[in-house]
Design a binder for these strands. Structure first.
Lengths: 226, 226
DNA sequence: ACACATACACTTGTATACATATAAGAACCG
DNA sequence: CGGTTCTTATATGTATACAAGTGTATGTGT
């Protein structure tokens, strides 16, 4: 693979901020190019990114702090997560998304309102034969709009963190038969509750919505393993 | 300040793993030696820790990922948090600690039970004139025992993260008049609920307990500002 | 005296050199 | 032939050199 080489290591003149090793490695893990348990040697990553080991190490340290990779002995490995850990993440997410919905209902402003309405509309306008990636993207935008509307830095931080770990498991629950239709209804109800300042109802709907997602994930696993 | 110098940069022969720059800088921030808004120059930190800039940069990257410091322009600064942000953290903590108490009631094992009972006993045995640091320490051990008993990696991770940000504000709510006595009662009730596998009651008590902590923090601020 | 330009010092970002530890393979001994 | 030890290759941890950018201070011109 031919990569843009720099002589001095200065920024590649792409016009704007070039993609950092941190982003590249993270994306590679999310895309499944780097598999769990795989050792990450600094030299190979450095060649792959076209930089020296120094920025690679910074990226690895940051990713380790994110929980995406782990240090064992002296090497970094893509972190592996057991089904139990994934389920725990789903459970915490249920709680936090419910909090986000509650806060959004209490705190949203005009811009948040427009964002949520547009994201909901985008979900509705998706063609019936849209693929999983498109569904996941629209879904992510919608929930992120709510997350933002909650105006809680702390909550935003933790939810982003959790979702990062779930993003590694690409088989979205949204492609489960009939799931997208019911998700659309729930999204509409959630929007109505939030924009109507009904915090309790918003929290309850969000809780049910994400519990459903968890249960579908569970069912998908049991299909595989039984 | 005279610091242990190494010629080769190899480990200082302290007998065991020497304190990493990450830990040192983090502690300095928690202790208030490094104040919010203060710029962190790599060179001075390197001299302070007795290492070169390379390990310092790794520490700074990790701390930035923790949210303890932030990058503005090209420099690192100790992160400042507004009262609103702190309150948001308290709010999220209420939710997560309630979840932890619920899970602990459902999942605790023998070792967890011993840890919780011992931590509770340690709280009770503190002398009446114990200082804030001692109260905070005993309190931390107790809640950490519950956090561990929840057996949720995800929850543990997020709670540790949240508490890290609250640890910067050393004026503990526990020194508020009468607070420690009522906290002791609540700890005992919480322990009883958890060990009795009463998940709902445990969650409710934890929620009230941490809501109280938040409200005391709020009251302390209003004393100062009004 | 004030504004603007230029030079310099300081700091960061990256590359690279080198010491050390670890693991794998080869050789040797039982 | 198997096990153990030594050797060596490879990867990490740290230090250092150097380039580039930024902010400040100084000097000059009006």
């Amino acid at each position: 693979m031919v990569l843009p080489q720099t002589q001095t290591g200065r920024a590649i003149p792409t016009g704007r901020q070039s993609v950092t090793p941190y982003d590249r490695i993270k994306q590679a893990i999310l895309d499944g190019e780097l598999l769990p348990g795989q050792p990450l040697t600094e030299q190979s990553l450095a060649e792959w990114c076209g930089v020296s080991r120094t920025p690679i190490r910074e990226a690895l340290v940051a990713l380790a702090q994110d929980g995406m990779i782990e240090r064992r002995n002296r090497a970094f490995f893509v972190r592996e997560r057991s089904p139990e850990e994934i389920l725990d993440i789903y459970d915490v997410r249920i709680t936090l998304e419910a909090s986000a919905a509650r806060l959004a209902a209490e705190r949203y402003n005009k811009i948040d309102r427009i964002r949520i309405e547009q994201a909901l509309a985008a979900c509705k306008e998706l063609p019936a034969d849209a693929d999983g990636a498109a569904l996941a993207q629209a879904n992510r935008v919608f929930h992120h709009a709510i997350q933002t509307a909650a105006h809680s830095q702390a909550l935003d931080d933790l939810l982003t963190r959790l979702n990062l770990h779930l993003a590694r498991y690409p088989a979205t629950t949204l492609t489960s038969p009939g799931r997208w239709q019911s998700a659309l209804v729930e999204h509409a109800e959630l929007t109505e509750a939030i924009l109507g300042n009904d915090a309790d109802r918003a929290a309850r709907i969000a809780e049910e919505h994400f519990t459903e997602a968890r249960d579908i994930r569970l069912a998908l696993w049991e299909q595989d393993t039984i």
